[in-house]
Amino acid sequence: MGNIEFDFKPTVEVWDANASLGPRHDFKVSVDNAEQTLEEMDRLKIEKAIVYSPHSVGFDSNDGNNYLIDLIDSNKRLIPQFVFNPTWDNLEQFQEEIEKNQISSVRMTPGVHKYPFKNWIVKPWLSWLQESRIPLWIPLSYEFLGDESPVNPSELHETISQYPRLQVVISDVHYKFSWIFQFLEDLPNCHVEISQIIGTGAIEELIQRIGYERILFGSGFPENNIGRQLYSVHQSELEKNVLEAICYKNIQELLGYSQILK
């Protein structure tokens, strides 16, 4: 039999850069609370996970973000990520919530919330995030009842390029988005979360083309399994420092944890 680890465990510390916490209204996820999430994290030796609320994406960011804080219940292994909708939310109120809850990253979902990713919509928000050094996650293929609009890569590129100090994480990159390689090469302030980067040799190609410093391990849990991409990066003959960077050091750096932990 081939070289198989039937009882796979990661060999380095792992932080999951793309997970959600809480029930969805459009289907029942197998795991929708902190206790079960931590149980699966323990099984695969995941130290921490950045979690957002599906309710924030599907219905209301304010309600969902507050619900997320309740669900996390101060557990330090679950790092809350707040969602906002620039066409609906109040920026000042959101800023207060970010400060009050010590939120280290945020997420926009233009595909689900259906707005053009153009400056006339997002400028006040992106300007604030850039000045505040708060990294922004943008998923490309979040599913929501099949009603989401495709994210326009040209709008994304044009707008992000106007905020060169804003740190952006492109997440949920469906394998059909083959433009992601040129996109990342052209925008050095963009990072990529790899839960859906599953083409043959695609992780190695990413490392070759943009370096390993902007690549973040993420799972898409609980809609996806944590183990799939984690196993895959462990079977890629990466140098230990590269594996560590992808699995936890890059996200620590991005969220400012590397300074706190020193």
Partner: peptide, 16 residues
């Protein structure tokens, strides 16, 4: 394969 990487796909079974 090669649409999907076999390492990612075999992990569905290995890590289950």
């Amino acid at each position: 394969m090669p649409l999907f990487d076999a390492r990612n796909q075999i992990a569905r079974i290995i890590t289950s």
